[in-house]
Simulated scan of single mutants.
Amino acid sequence: MDLDAVELAFSKNFEEFGELGASVSIWKEGVEVLNLADGWCEREKVHPWNSATIVPFYSATKALASATLLILLEENGLSPDDLVCRVWANFPNSSATFAELLSHQCGLAALDQKSSVFEHEEVIAAIEAQEPNWDLGDGHGYHPRTFGFLVDEPVRLLTGKRLGEVFRERIAEPLGLELWIGLPESEFDRVATLYPGKMNKSDLASGFYKEFNQSGTLVRQAFSSPSGLQGVHEMNTSKAWQAGLPAMGGVGTAQGLAKFYQVAIGAIPFFSDDVLNWMRTPVVTGDDRILMTPTRFSCGFQLDPLDENGDKIRHNYGKGMHAFGHPGAGGSHAFGDPDTGISYAYIMNQMDLSVLPGAKSMGIIETL
């Protein structure tokens, strides 16, 4: 592993790609081997960015939320093959399993009934009333917003607590991870300011953004329901940090995310063998109805999709065939590779306009 080359790739992000503030953390076989942090927490350049800086990392949160639900299923004598309705009696598809829920197959990506991300019971009512966007067994599509409520509700039913509370108690605190799904006020002064990315002509030409920018499409509805926190500026508020949204509300350090994936690949003993296997074993693959590109999911995590020859179509998770993780909108990204023992995380505050990892993170991964 050429860590000097990785450091040069990190520096290139500031010199060539307009990075403002960022951290990268790389671990191997239970030990952090590289921790880089540079830049600024805001455009006014008042507070230098350092390794203790925390920032919202959007959908990278989904992995943390999924792990929380998986450990609770195991503790309650359940597995991903069990029906969701065994825990959630009013779930709108009585034949759906937790594996199908966690791999975005249930067709609940967009909601017809209006609801707010800040009103959990309101969203749950909308989910329970929803006619699925597609039939179970007829493919899959990323659930950008509803996913958090789909995993939070079973956790609440099993424990009586919000998912973010259980994550802190059962995973983050025992492992010393500076990660939160619901940030306490004591950490507010550590949060960097997020800035939105700009759309260019190549973005406008893509099938995803054509659908995203067209009113009434399933893609547009999936990214706008339930409502709230649509703009990046809204994510810079304490209300957003404290909301504890398991689909997109995580806040923390790159070190915390990279260490989480050391645990997820078994380099740091913590999860049972069953939970480790549920995280990394592919459940569904194919053309994604929402992201408009091939995707592959395990129980709550992404893997690189494969072509007909079994070769990777993309390398968002490096060269390893069993590597898995989850990106966040704008450029945050984290994953682990059980074959090499390596885990990686990148967080930043100058967002790109992408839902999959962009040039800044991919340049480091290719070097790594």
Rank of each mutant, 00 (worst) to 15 (best):
S298K: 06
G21L: 11
E366M: 05
P246V: 07
G363I: 05
V219L: 07
L69E: 03
T295Y: 02
M1Q: 12
H233L: 13
L69R: 05
R289F: 09
D273P: 00
F147R: 02
V275E: 01
A22V: 13
P226E: 13
D311W: 04
L70M: 07
E131N: 13
R162L: 10
L229W: 14
T97K: 10
Q255C: 06
N213D: 12
G228R: 10
V284K: 03
I342R: 08
G77H: 06
F14D: 11
K201V: 14
I181C: 10
A52R: 13
P144L: 06
T159M: 00
V24R: 01
A192Y: 07
V84N: 06
E75K: 12
G256P: 01
G216Y: 02
A243Q: 08
E15M: 10
A264K: 01
T295P: 03
A205T: 02
W40D: 09
W40Q: 12
A60W: 09
F324H: 09
E100R: 14
T281Q: 12
T293C: 07
E74R: 10
Y346T: 04
Y195M: 12
E42I: 03
P184H: 03
Q130D: 11
K28I: 11
C299V: 09
A172D: 04
E16P: 06
H333V: 08
N90S: 15
G21I: 09
E121K: 12
Y346S: 03
G107M: 01
L69K: 03
G363M: 01
K45E: 13
A240R: 05
G148F: 06
D304K: 00
